[in-house]
């Protein structure tokens, strides 16, 4: 494949400058490489993607023919108070969980980047929350967050709190806190392990040089570690934002959006409308309302990756 690409550009119609030649050759190589995966993505995501957008412009129920309504579904969303609550919830959920995962993940990566006995075991064990199937671990959390069985409630009640103690999923604020906590629990290990991989690629000489220059551990972290880790942190964060923003499984199993919509997210609300109510068009419009925010994140990521050379 590569040989062909080389020969294709090896016989140019007219002599080219070396720079020009390299660009053209690179182009051919680039497209040769990217063609297959792109074709795959277009074939499998292209149709569903267009279908989703088309659906959002229709009044379309399961088992019924569609009527084109333009932006009608989106206008209906804008008038729906629950929709705006869902918007707020999703932003709170995403922002808080991402901050916790990023901060905690970095801290854990730094801790694990030290030399200690059993570090490989620890590194693997820490990944467990990420490995176990989400639907099943969430079912475990249903017990852990049940006031009658929660360890925290057990201690609180034994310290004199009126039984059964705080209701982790029944109180709207605690419920949001709980789903964020579980999301953090699930997502933090991947952050940590990815950032650890990033930390490992930082050449040790840089730290030596900084130490010779008299930098303390905070300065070494601030001026050596952080800048070099920045690209990895950014990419992981961006993807974490995308996945958290469109999270479905966790909330669906744990609260299904309750109590009184306090934890409903775009994906769960859209799913309820599309599946339980059979309103595919409306459901699609709710899901697609995520698009502007996500597109912004993705555009920022693209720009950053294109501009930066390191």
């Amino acid at each position: 494949m590569v040989l062909r690409s080389e020969s294709a550009v090896a016989v140019p119609a007219r002599p080219l400058s070396r720079a020009r030649f390299r660009i053209k050759e690179g182009t051919a190589f680039g497209w040769m490489m990217a063609a297959l995966p792109l074709l795959f993505l277009v074939a499998f995501v292209g149709y569903p993607f267009v279908y989703g957008i088309w659906l959002s412009l229709e009044n379309r129920s399961v088992a019924r023919p569609a009527v084109f309504v333009g932006l009608g579904n989106f206008i209906a969303d804008a008038r729906d108070p629950v929709f705006w609550q869902v918007v707020r919830n999703t932003f709170v959920y995403t922002i808080v969980a991402t901050v916790l995962k990023a901060g905690g993940g970095l801290a854990l990566a730094l801790v694990m980047n030290q030399n200690f006995r059993g570090k490989n075991l620890v590194r693997a064990m820490v990944l467990l929350p990420f490995i176990v199937p989400t639907v099943l671990s969430t079912i475990a959390w249903m017990w852990i967050l049940d006031p009658a069985f929660s360890v925290l409630n057990w201690f609180l009640v034994h310290l004199g709190e009126r039984p059964p103690g705080p209701s982790w999923l029944g109180n709207p604020y605690l419920a949001m806190g709980s789903v964020i906590f579980v999301n953090t629990w699930r997502g933090l290990p991947f952050y940590a392990i990815t950032l650890l991989a990033g930390l490992q690629t930082i050449p040790g000489d840089l730290y030596d040089a900084a130490t010779i220059d008299g930098a303390g551990s905070w300065h070494r972290f601030r001026y050596v570690t952080l800048p070099l880790l920045q690209p990895v942190i950014l990419i992981v964060t961006m993807f974490s934002v995308i996945f958290t923003f469109s999270d479905f499984q966790l909330v669906y199993v744990l609260t299904r959006g309750g109590p009184a919509n306090a934890t409903h997210l775009f994906a769960t609300y859209s799913f309820d409308i599309a599946m339980s109510a059979g309103q595919l068009g409306r459901g699609a419009s709710v899901a697609l309302a995520m698009l502007p925010a996500l597109a912004l994140v993705i555009a920022a990521l693209t720009l950053y990756m294109r501009r930066r050379r390191w």
Binding site: D146, P147, S167, L169, G170, N171, A175
Partner: peptide, 21 residues
């Protein structure tokens, strides 16, 4: 009623009843 009922699903009351809550 237990406050927790606001966040219950269909399995919750089975669990609470059988655990004598």
């Amino acid at each position: 009623t237990l406050e927790d009922c606001l966040g219950w699903n269909d399995a919750s009351n089975n669990k609470a009843y059988l655990s004598q809550q």
